[in-house]
C-alpha cells in the first residue's frame, strides 16, 4: 500500500506528523513512520492478512464512523494528496478527531449522523472510496444510502461489520452471509474475510459500486 512500510512484522505509515494516539514513531532513511498496529485499526488488520487495497494518493474518501481518528490518521498519511471527509456523531471521540483535523490539511471533520446523509449532502463531494466502520444494526442500509449520495460510479466501498451490532441473536456466520447477500445487489465484491485474530467477530467487505 502507498506510503506503507513494514517494520519487522508491523506496518507503519510514512508521516510528516507526530503521534496521534500514542503510537510509536520509526525512522527510516531520514523519513518518519507511524506504527499502525492491526489491533487498533481494522484496515491494518486487513493488511496483515495480506489483502490489498491500492491507493494513488489523491483519492477523495468519505469515512463513516471516524471515532477519534485512529484509522483516519493513517489513511490521511496514505492519501496525502487527497481529502478525507470524516463523519462521527459522538461528541467525545470527536474532540480528539478535531485535534487531528486541525493538525492535518486533508481531513474535513463533520459532526453528523451517518444514517442521515442528506444532512451533509451539500458539503461532501463525490468520492472514490466509501469507508464505513460503524456498529449499527442497519449499517448496510446506511452504506447504501451514502453510496447513492456520494460514491462515484466504479467507486469502492470498504466496510467493517461487527456481527453482534447487526444482530446479536444470530450466529456470526449467519449475520455475515445476510450482510453479503444485501451487498451483492449493489456492489461487486472484490474480497471479504474475517479480521481474526485481531478483531473478534468482525469481517471486512471490499467492493466496487456496480
Amino acid at each position: 500500500m502507498r506510503n506503507v512500510k513494514f517494520f519487522g512484522s508491523i506496518p507503519a505509515t510514512r508521516s510528516k506528523f507526530g503521534s496521534h494516539y500514542g503510537e510509536k514513531i520509526f525512522e527510516l532513511e531520514g523519513e518518519l513512520y507511524r506504527e499502525w498496529t492491526p489491533w487498533r485499526s481494522k484496515l491494518s488488520a486487513m493488511l496483515m492478512k495480506n489483502y490489498k487495497v491500492e491507493f494513488l494518493g489523491n483519492e477523495k474518501i468519505l469515512y463513516l464512523g471516524a471515532a477519534s481518528g485512529t484509522t483516519v490518521s493513517h489513511l490521511a498519511d496514505i492519501v496525502d494528496e487527497g481529502f478525507i471527509y470524516a463523519v462521527e456523531y459522538s461528541a467525545k471521540p470527536f474532540k480528539k478527531l478535531l485535534e487531528l483535523a486541525k493538525n492535518r490539511q486533508n481531513i474535513i471533520p463533520i459532526f453528523g449522523d451517518a444514517s442521515k446523509p442528506w444532512e451533509y449532502s451539500g458539503i461532501v463531494e463525490k468520492v472514490d472510496l466509501l469507508y464505513q466502520d460503524i456498529s449499527q444494526r442497519n449499517q448496510v442500509e446506511i452504506l447504501k444510502m451514502n453510496s447513492d449520495f456520494f460514491l462515484k460510479k466504479k467507486g469502492r466501498i470498504l466496510m467493517m461489520v461487527k456481527a453482534k451490532s447487526v444482530d446479536s441473536t444470530l450466529e456470526s456466520s449467519e449475520v455475515f452471509s445476510k450482510v453479503l447477500e444485501e451487498l451483492y445487489k449493489k456492489f461487486f465484491i472484490l474480497s471479504t474475510d474475517t479480521l481474526e485474530p485481531y478483531h473478534k467477530d468482525h469481517i471486512f467487505v471490499y467492493g466496487v459500486k456496480d
Partner: peptide, 21 residues
C-alpha cells in the same frame, strides 16, 4: 476551496461538540 471548507468544518464542529458535551 478545500482550505475554506476545512476551516469552516472545524469551526462549526467545534461549536456543536462543545454544546452537546
Amino acid at each position: 476551496y478545500y482550505n475554506l471548507l476545512r476551516k469552516t468544518a472545524i469551526e462549526v464542529a467545534e461549536e456543536r461538540v462543545e454544546k452537546e458535551l
